[in-house]
Structure formats: structure tokens, C-alpha cells
């Protein structure tokens, strides 16, 4: 009986705290994405500038490790029985990737463009060896191109 109460309490805590944290995180993501719109991150290797204009290039990266809350993990566990889309995990992955991309851009504030951006995801942590995903790491990296001052 005590176990049941504990699980219910954890689920409720996970639901409320998780939802609150997610909303707050999304607000911050939207805001920073708007601020960083002047640095395009493209996945192509071609550099849209002639060679003479390029001042420097360097590798930039950003990463984020994000964990899922107890409530969503429970939901996903249920989904494992019936199959289908696990919507609760989609937002987890989306947040991690966008956060990683933002951090990459923030580490190159004076870049004109970031080319050849790659995004990589890996499950790490305690639960990664099991069927469940505990937390995931998203890594974004690319080559930041800085131009000569006109």
C-alpha cells in the first residue's frame, strides 16, 4: 500500500514539476531562437561566401542532457504495451536538440554562418541499458565562419 502511495506521489510530482519545467524551458527556447536568428545554421557544406571574404573558421559545439520526468516515463511504459507514437518523448528530444543548437550558436556570437551542422543524439545514464530511456544527450556541432570586416 505504501509503495502504491509512493508511486502515485512520484507521478503527481513528476507531472506538475515536469510540465512546469517544460513550459518554462520552451519559453526560453522560443525567445533565444528569435535572438539568434541572425546566425543561420545550415547543414550543407557549401559556404555561401567567396574565399577572400572569410576571416576565420572554427569548430563550434553545444550539448544538452535532458531527463524525462516520472509521469512521462510511466506513460511511455504503457505505450510499450500497446505500441504507437510516444508523444511524451517527442518533446524531450525536441527540447534537447533545440537547446544544443542554441548553445552552439551562443558559442559563436560573431559568426556570419555555421555550416555543415550535425546533430547527434545518444541515450546515456542509468536506464540506457534497459528498454527505457532515462536521459538523452543531444550534441550539435558545425563550422562557424567569420567574415572580414567590410
Amino acid at each position: 500500500m505504501n509503495d502504491l502511495i509512493l508511486i502515485l506521489a512520484l507521478t503527481a510530482l513528476g507531472y506538475f514539476a515536469g510540465t512546469w519545467a517544460e513550459k518554462r524551458h520552451y519559453r526560453s527556447i522560443y525567445e533565444r531562437e528569435k535572438q539568434l536568428l541572425h546566425i543561420p545554421a545550415i547543414t550543407m557544406k557549401d559556404i555561401p561566401y567567396p574565399n577572400g571574404e572569410i576571416r576565420s573558421s572554427r569548430l563550434v559545439e553545444g550539448s544538452a542532457v535532458i531527463s524525462i520526468d516520472y509521469f512521462k516515463r510511466l506513460l511511455a511504459g504503457l505505450r510499450n504495451i500497446f505500441g504507437g507514437t510516444i508523444i511524451s518523448y517527442e518533446s524531450l528530444l525536441d527540447r534537447a536538440r533545440r537547446e544544443a543548437l542554441l548553445r552552439m550558436k551562443e558559442s559563436a556570437p560573431d559568426a556570419a554562418v555555421i555550416v555543415n551542422v550535425r546533430i547527434e543524439t545518444s541515450a546515456i545514464g542509468k536506464y540506457s541499458s534497459k528498454r527505457n530511456i532515462g536521459c538523452i544527450e543531444a550534441l550539435a556541432y558545425g563550422t562557424a565562419i567569420k567574415l572580414r570586416q567590410q
Binding site: 513528476g14 514539476a17 515536469g18 519545467a21 542532457v65 545514464g125 542509468k126
Partner: peptide
């Protein structure tokens, strides 16, 4: 991290 696994969110230590 175990605590964060309940409420979700970023694990800054791991990052």
C-alpha cells in the same frame, strides 16, 4: 540525476 529523473529537466552535471 536520480532526483532529476523524477521531475525531469536538464541534468547540468551531466552536460
Amino acid at each position: 540525476a536520480s532526483l532529476k529523473n523524477i521531475v525531469g529537466g536538464e541534468l547540468k552535471g551531466y552536460t
